[in-house]
Design a protein around this nucleic acid. Sequence first.
DNA 1: ACACATTCTTAGAATCGTTCTACAATGCGT
DNA 2: ACGCATTGTAGAACGATTCTAAGAATGTGT
Lengths: 148, 148
Amino acid sequence: MTTTPQPHSRPQPTLPTGRRLTPQRRLVYDTLAAAPTHPDAEQLIAQVRRRDPSISVATVYNTVRLLADAGWILELRGLGTRTRYDANTAEHDHFTCRACGAVEDIPAQLHGPYRLHGEDLDRYRVDEVRVHALGLCDQCVVEGPGAD
Amino acid sequence: MTTTPQPHSRPQPTLPTGRRLTPQRRLVYDTLAAAPTHPDAEQLIAQVRRRDPSISVATVYNTVRLLADAGWILELRGLGTRTRYDANTAEHDHFTCRACGAVEDIPAQLHGPYRLHGEDLDRYRVDEVRVHALGLCDQCVVEGPGAD
DNA sequence: ACACATTCTTAGAATCGTTCTACAATGCGT
DNA sequence: ACGCATTGTAGAACGATTCTAAGAATGTGT
């Protein structure tokens, strides 16, 4: 990593009108912002409960939806069966390890610009392109291509 | 379309040993191969039932899994909430319309090569890159940018 | 500080998409 | 035609997510 972002800084201090940043919500956001890999709901709930065992499943689900709508976090669908959550809202792509299932960010500057071209493009009004790489992470390559 | 593939040709006439291409399975495959957009399970079941109303939900689910394992079709996760199915197994990307939810193929030659670069790439052993574009399809642009 | 309206958290029920189970029906090799 | 593995069906079961109802907490105006 060349830059060191503050994991606890709130990128968008605005929630929809009337909605409050409660301790539970702050806890969910902070927990997610501190997670290196992008947890799914079950993992996030477990991590959050280490700090507040009384928080309910519904509160975490409600909170991630609220935070996603507000633009504080990203909901990642399609990286596997479950929805994963990502506190990094800067433009970036994702890498999934086929062996261990871990999901990592790929900084946007690590890949060249993706550009659609061709005559058929008249049919598309593209405003976002998501890139998802799959393969083996460093650790799984080391630990044993022959194992399993 | 510049090329005109035969929708009813079977790309891989091999199923796992002992598994038969039954009328129900052929119907599911043919229906999917004839669908312009990539249906989810519910849509596919409805389309299949127009030709065979007695086919069961489980049969369609079992069949798409079998066909996917055999490489006849692709399971598309992450384009929305539900899994969608695609009889086009050639390399290509996908476009999702934010307005109507339709999913279309983007031929691989319509975009430039995606290439990872940078020193951090030592950590990734990428073997596949999926690209997903989002925006508005031709029809939804025409029908009304202001009409939500 | 008090009353009030709004928002929040909680536990459990409900829902949605998908998979599993049990059993009858089918089809292939002999 | 017989035996046996494979298949199709309906419905139950399952896991992830969302909804509901009720009470608790918060903020505001006085």
